[in-house]
Simulated scan of single mutants.
Amino acid sequence: MLIRPREISAELAILRILNRKMNLTEKEKLHYFILEKGYEGELKFDSLTKNLQGEHLITNDLLLNHNYSSFQIDSLIHFQKSIYLIDVKNFEGDYFFKPDGFYSANDKPIKDPLAQLKKMRIITQSIKPTVWI
């Protein structure tokens, strides 16, 4: 059962309008493209979860704060005995890893896709489970 459907972010909605009305800078266009690709990947993921078997709850686009640090969970899927935190990535092209980070095929540095995962791992390990009866 879907508890919270996926919504387009306010930032992406604004960039869609601005892109039609004005010439974005190269940096703004790149940011807009990245947001569009991310949203497209999340929609693809959502189409895969429509056929999940068994009783489950799906909550999308959670923005949480813990110890003055915010993090986003693209999808949280809760089954009776387990919870899955999903961070969707929708990259295309060739990428490679160097000791100082990730790079695109044209040797430009990109945001580390594992950073969000590491952050979520640290935060979720520090949270003590609470049982409500």
Rank of each mutant, 00 (worst) to 15 (best):
M1L: 08
M1V: 10
R6T: 04
A10F: 14
I14N: 13
R16S: 00
R16G: 00
N19L: 03
K21V: 12
N23C: 08
L24A: 00
T25H: 08
E26H: 13
E26L: 12
K27Y: 12
L30P: 06
H31V: 01
H31Q: 11
Y39F: 10
E40S: 09
G41F: 00
F45W: 07
D46I: 03
S47R: 08
L48P: 09
L48K: 14
N51I: 13
L52R: 05
G54Q: 04
H56T: 07
I58F: 06
T59C: 15
T59D: 08
L63H: 13
Y68G: 15
Y68I: 08
Y68D: 15
F71H: 00
F71W: 01
F71A: 00
I77Q: 06
Q80G: 09
Y84V: 07
L85C: 09
D87P: 01
D87Q: 13
D87C: 04
V88R: 01
K89D: 02
K89F: 04
N90L: 02
G93F: 03
F96T: 05
F96L: 10
F97K: 14
F97N: 12
F97P: 06
P99N: 04
P99L: 04
Y103V: 03
Y103M: 03
Y103T: 03
S104R: 08
S104C: 08
A105N: 13
N106W: 15
N106A: 12
K108A: 12
K108W: 13
L114G: 05
Q116Y: 00
L117G: 06
K118I: 12
M120H: 15
I122Y: 10
Q125H: 14
Q125L: 09
I127Q: 09
W132F: 14
I133R: 10
I133V: 11
